[in-house]
Nucleic acid binder design. Structure first.
Length: 891
RNA sequence: GGGCCCGUAGCUCAGUUGGUUAGAGCGCUACCUUGACACGGUAGAGGUCGCAGAUUCGAGUUCUGCCGGGCCCACCA
């Protein structure tokens, strides 16, 4: 019969996703989905849906997975979740690890050897490369540069680059870029992290030529750059320096004569109003230098060492040079002031090295035309952010966007499809390597050694993965995507760029219609979890400890839109308890099935099943009730997930299963098992309800529900997995107000009795006796449920349709008065409670009366609000009367 | 400097268009090892919703200011 020796305690690690493995292999899903599978679950796509998950933090995928499962179970087919090219990330992570183990800097290998090794390792590790990546995930620094081996993607990247170039949107220029001396590459603005640093502002005297004794004082945070000064700037309107117009100063240490220029760069209100101008090492100065046609003197090189241009300081590290420059200035009495100064130091996002602004030749994307279209897409609502306020952040960035430096001096990445002529220096951009120089015909061509910013290729993901530039059926079907779920931390890096690239290359069509921004997972100290910080909760560890489903549930409960997700062990533990609760509810079911000789059973049609009755009998009230509640839970869950309110869905499911199904339904069912044998209506209803509840829970807790669902397998043909079954939808005909009311009455009476018992400090095993008084119709309901009341409250009650006496041990609702026979000593314990209730009621009555005597309120408030207060007041007054009676009785 | 978000029970957080006595989980108290579950059950205690105004018949919810905390963007020496 049942195979099961069901252990008492739910064992998290019991559930391995083995059952779904086959499906992935035959699905049309992109293979990259596997990458997150071992951590949370296998994502089972609808057959007509494609998609993929990006590699963010694994823990942030629960929302994505819930959404996918929910869509799948509802048979919807337009969901598509783009991801980055994982193969590249995985490869890069593994390769860099392996090289590090061998003590090799990848740059020392030579590009050919490097590529050879990558291919070799890739072949060796096969598909386990992704698994390796996940295991590394917790501690591995996730470099965003990577070596991409995907030929299709490479083709799309080249195509886009060439097309942008042809439109004049890609250009190569000498420009100031953020240079990381450690990574030895240019960085885009976004890759520079500004870190608040305590620094100094040094005030230095520059003597003015031809005016003995006249100095200008410049203030700088980087004195070593003065070696490359080619001017000092003053503001034309600054009266203090009017006499210096047209003069020159003598640059100390270098003994170079440099002009005093008039430029807006100098703000008379800041510092001394005099600015040193170092066009080769400062963005502002670079532009000022262009305006005034100043020479560029590079004094710091790409290794952050001083160049020959720095004269006597050549060869020194930039910080050593700073110390020497300051010392030398001090010696000459030119350092007039040193003050503390807080500055935001630009550092490399990846290696934290202070970046060095350097002038170099780089490739840029002229971004404004692309950005304008992407702005329009959000303004017109073709792309919608959820929560909506993220669109403000998006606009903020898009309106202030600057040209995008896309070349990187790294080896992993897509190589820029540009060739340089060794003869005449001509630069050619082409899809394939040209055989000869287009200008001079020489055959000595070399490909540009730079690679593209990783986000350049990532930005093409929505269409490059679907076969673009070919017009494939996939592309037609799955572009655009309905939904992108992602974290705000890559809103600019990736989301905005996907939007820009998608619109540009897909005839103006956006890549996705909705962008759901989930919260970032934070640890108990509210630190953002990220691989670069190394404070990640290792999903493999916590899923081992609490179970995958419990971790998911814990995440979902914290996943309110617009907030961070705080993941604590406490919450995971309590979710584990919830999983155990379900597990044991199932255990109860299975053990009793065995006892009653009931076979596994599910109805033929899950969508039309309604609680059944035995011939000649009524449908059991608890069955009517649980289906009504199930229906309400289905309505809540569907609505919540649809609106990305995952925490609401989680709470609704939790409440339904624990506090309705387990606390009341199962308890009521226990009363029936004695009389039951065989698969009667009571059993059928219960099994159907449980089966439906499992499906309802499935997106949130896939493994546990799958396991139990498989054990419920009956005769009816069913899908191979619960993930392929239908998600329960609200069905109006299941809502049963009468059953809801009847069980609610039952709950009220049972709770009253239990409360009285607990407050009177009575032994739970002692059977109580008492009388339930009511003059309303609800007494009949209570009489009908007398047996359940007796069992659940362990009390034998009489039911009287009369007013309650002035009894001491009494609990009241508007409808009922329950009077228990208690020993005198315990009756006194009731006084406190009654007095408290009386005070609360008095407050409520006062409030209601005040409102009802307010003509303005009566005139302006909607009638139903006034009515509800009237009936409320009547109820309060009735209860107060009873309590005062009871208090009189105890006196 | 610009922008965004947060401040609700001891802790971590919900609270969708303003409308009953503001909720959950954990923790806490008392009792119960009852036959699914002690990762359990029953019953409780605990909050002037950061502060001050404004709008409204009515504000945790809308507006303004302030205080406190966080994040993002930014070339001011």
């Amino acid at each position: 019969l049942f195979p099961m020796q069901i252990e008492k305690v739910y064992e998290p690690r019991r559930f391995e996703p083995h059952w779904a493995q086959w499906w992935i292999d035959s699905g049309v899903f992109h293979a990259s989905v596997e990458s997150s599978a071992p951590v949370f679950s296998l994502v089972i796509p609808p057959p007509n849906v494609t998609g993929s998950l990006h590699i963010g933090h694994m823990l942030e995928h629960s929302e994505i997975d819930v959404t996918i499962r929910w869509h799948r179970m509802r048979g919807e087919n337009t969901l598509w979740l783009p991801g980055t090219d994982h193969a590249g990330i995985a490869t890069q992570m593994v390769v860099s690890r392996k090289l590090a183990e061998e003590g090799i800097n990848y740059r020392d290998l030579g590009r050919e050897e490097f590529e050879k090794r990558v291919w070799q390792w890739k072949a060796e590790s096969g598909d386990t490369i992704k698994r390796q990546m996940i295991r590394l995930g917790a501690s591995c620094d996730w470099s965003r540069e990577r070596f991409t081996l995907d030929a299709g993607l490479s083709r799309a990247v080249r195509e886009v680059f060439v097309r942008l170039y042809e439109k004049g949107l890609v250009y190569r220029g000498e420009y100031m870029v953020n240079w990381c001396p450690q990574c030895k590459t240019a960085l885009s603005d976004l890759e520079v992290a500004h870190v608040a640093t305590a620094g100094h502002l040094w005030h230095i005297q520059y003597p003015v030529n031809g005016m003995p004794g006249r100095y200008v004082v410049v203030a700088t945070t980087r004195p070593e750059t003065m070696l490359g000064d080619t001017a000092v700037a003053i503001n034309a309107k600054d009266a203090r320096y009017a006499d210096l117009h047209g003069r020159t100063v003598q640059l100390p240490l270098m003994d170079r004569e440099i002009p005093i220029i008039l430029d807006e760069l100098a703000d008379p209100a800041f510092g001394t109003g005099v600015v040193k101008v170092t066009p080769a090492h400062d963005m502002n100065d670079f532009e000022a230098g262009r305006r005034h046609k100043l020479p560029l003197i590079q004094v710091i090189d790409e290794n952050a060492a001083m160049t020959p241009g720095a004269g006597p300081y050549a060869g020194l590290d930039r910080f050593e040079a700073r110390r020497r420059v300051l010392a030398d200035l001090e010696d000459r009495g030119l350092l007039v002031k040193t003050e503390d100064y807080a500055l935001n130091l630009g550092t490399c996002q990846r290696c934290k090295t202070p970046v060095e602004p350097l002038v170099s030749k780089q490739w840029f994307v002229k971004i404004k035309p692309l950005a304008d279209k992407a702005i329009d897409a959000v303004e017109t609502g073709r792309i919608k952010f959820i929560p909506a306020n993220w669109s403000k952040t998006y606009f903020e960035w898009m309106y202030n966007i600057r040209d995008w430096c896309i070349s990187r001096q790294l080896w992993w990445g897509h190589r820029i499809p540009a060739w340089h002529c060794g003869n005449c220096g001509e630069v050619m951009v082409a899809r394939e390597a040209p055989s000869a120089c287009a200008k001079c015909g020489a055959a000595r061509l070399t490909q540009d050694t730079d690679v593209l910013d990783t986000w350049f290729s990532s930005g093409l993901w929505p269409f490059s993965t679907l076969g673009w530039p070919d017009r494939t059926p996939d592309l037609a079907k799955f572009y655009p995507t309905s939904l992108l779920i992602t974290g705000f931390d890559i809103l600019f890096f990736w989301v905005a760029r996907m939007a820009m690239m998608g619109i540009e290359f897909m005839d103006g069509e956006v890549p996705f219609r909705e962008v759901y921004i989930h919260g970032l997972v934070r640890d108990a100290e509210r630190q953002k979890m990220s691989k670069t910080r190394g404070n990640t909760i290792d999903p493999l560890v916590v899923t081992e400890k609490y179970g995958t489903d419990a971790v998911r549930m814990a995440l979902l409960q914290g996943a309110a839109p617009g907030t961070d997700i705080v993941l604590t062990e406490e919450r995971m533990a309590s979710s584990r308890d919830f999983a155990n609760k379900i597990w044991n509810a199932a255990r109860f079911l299975f053990l009793n099935m065995e006892r009653s000789g009931v076979d596994p059973w599910v109805p033929d049609s899950l969508e039309t099943f309604r609680p059944e009755a035995e011939p000649g009998q009524e449908v059991p009230i608890e069955d009517r009730w649980i289906f009504s509640r199930l229906n309400a839970a289905a309505a809540q869950a569907n609505r919540a997930i649809e609106q990305y309110r995952y925490h609401e869905a989680a709470q609704a499911l939790w409440h339904f299963f624990w506090h309705e199904f387990c606390d009341w339904y199962v308890e009521l069912k226990k009363l029936r098992f004695r009389e039951n044998s065989g698969l009667d209506a009571g059993w059928r209803n219960m099994l159907a309800a449980f089966e439906t509840a499992l499906r309802l829970l499935h997106p949130a807790m896939p493994f546990l529900t799958e396991e139990l669902w498989q054990r419920l397998k009956g005769q009816a043909p069913r899908p191979a997995s619960i993930a392929l079954a239908a998600y329960p939808q609200p069905r109006g005909e299941l809502a049963d107000a009468a059953a809801d009311a009847e069980i609610e009455t039952l709950q009220e009476i049972v709770t009253m009795a239990r409360t009285l018992r607990a407050e009177s400090k009575l032994d739970p095993k002692q059977r109580l006796s008492g009388v339930l008084y009511s003059r309303g119709p609800a007494l009949d309901v209570a009489r009908r449920r007398a047996e359940a009341i007796e069992k659940l409250a362990n009390a034998g009650l009489q039911y009287k349709a009369e007013a309650a006496p002035q009894a001491p041990a009494m609990r009241s609702t508007a409808e009922f008065d329950l009077v228990l026979e208690l020993p005198q000593a315990q009756q006194d314990a009731q006084r406190k409670r009654l007095e408290k209730d009386r005070d609360q009621l008095a407050r409520n009555i006062a409030n209601s009366k005040r409102q009802l005597s307010d003509d303005v309120f009566l005139g302006k408030a909607p009638p139903q609000v006034v009515d509800s207060i009237r009936s409320k007041l009547a109820g309060y007054e009735e209860q107060l009367r009873k309590i005062e009676g009871a208090l009189a009785g105890t006196a």
